[in-house]
Design a protein around this nucleic acid. Structure first.
Lengths: 199, 199
DNA sequence: ATGATTATATACCGATCGGTAGAAAAAAAT
DNA sequence: ATTTTTTTCTACCGATCGGTATATAATCAT
């Protein structure tokens, strides 16, 4: 009952995600948001709580719609394929034509005022979570003899995430997908491709 | 002649640099700056013009005092040593105990509002300049037969800068120097150390 | 001592920030 | 048709944003 909502919540959230992705949490004003989403401030606050709540919901959407490749990649049977799919997945997301360049989780709040400290902390935890998930996957690989010798699972995970974060800056600086792919090829050179027959 | 200045310009600039480094251009308010520098707004505007001018002068100081390793590294005779010195130089600067974590050139304005677009553009050009300088150095190395086979100079330069930008995010996320060094070791594995005797 | 010059401190500017109060409008329930 | 519920619109809130006008204080030159 009650007056029906005149805008599509999901569509509005998509716009908010794009704005936060492109301009960051603090760089995006409520005016940017309401004008972009085509709604007024009371409507925004009624549905999303406040700016912080809206950002967190937009981030959730980002993870669900743009970072879904990550946990899919973890299911790959060979660790080197996991690594490559993650690297190329990030590069693809960071250079999609219709989306902002770079990574929302980094663009969102890398350095900021005290007012955004909570968002910043949340994004850092986000990165750590991805690193931890990948590390766990590589621990399994280590037990399976599926890692290149002389490397700890956690170091390998941080290595992969570091490359991905580097490509995020590259994309935000104008690098195109082909350039990032060449970087990824170089980053994986040390990691021998799995032979078609087991060792 | 005239009333003498009561504060040290260089010292004030150092503080401004640290603030912009830690909180970014838009995340640092004039109140943060004046309180940190121990001067009033009219003094700040009298010496540095405005916030944008202050940031640019702080960035100049950053390049001069914290990024000096970069052009030093370019003078190394072997390309692989150039690469390693640059990577470790960035990691050192990004994890110095008494300085903010990460890189001022990235923290400064990665994603921002239109108001900071000029600063953002300036920082992007800054990154491109470094990449170009390194690329030129690697072109020389290519002529000298000093590059690993199968790689273009510009790709190698972008690769090195991508790793460094990745470690900047890692440092801003809490990674310590030892962790970054392990990443760097992995990133350089594909690049054979120069033999003690020439080929 | 008196100007001329430069830096300081105080107080202020319009604009924008994130956020909200209150009334009107649109639907469902009775 | 009236009440209830929810959304929308307009207008506004105090706080802070970057930036400045004005007056006073401190120096040098004469």
């Amino acid at each position: 009952m009650g007056r029906p909502r005149e805008f599509d919540v999901d569509e509005a959230l998509e716009t908010a995600m794009e704005l936060f992705w492109r301009k960051g949490y603090e760089g995006t004003s409520l005016t940017d948001l309401t004008e972009g989403m085509g709604i007024t401030k009371p409507s925004l606050y009624g549905v999303f709580g406040n700016k912080e709540g809206l950002f967190l919901k937009a981030l959730e959407r980002y993870e669900r719609t743009k970072m879904n490749f990550f946990h899919e990649a973890l299911k790959e049977p060979k660790a080197r394929v996991v690594a490559e799919k993650i690297l190329r997945g990030f590069a693809d997301a960071q250079t999609a034509e219709k989306d902002p360049s770079g990574c929302m989780g980094i663009n969102g709040a890398l350095a900021c005022s005290e007012a955004a400290a909570e968002i910043q902390k949340c994004l850092i935890e986000n990165r750590h979570r991805g690193e931890r998930d990948l590390s766990k996957r590589f621990e399994r690989a280590a037990q399976e003899g599926d890692l290149p010798p002389g490397h700890e699972p956690f170091d390998l995970a941080r290595y992969i995430m570091t490359i991905s974060q580097g490509t995020a800056i590259q994309a935000a600086s104008g690098a195109d997908r082909a350039a990032l792919y060449r970087v990824i090829d170089m980053a994986l050179q040390f990691w021998p491709e799995p032979g078609t027959q087991g060792s």
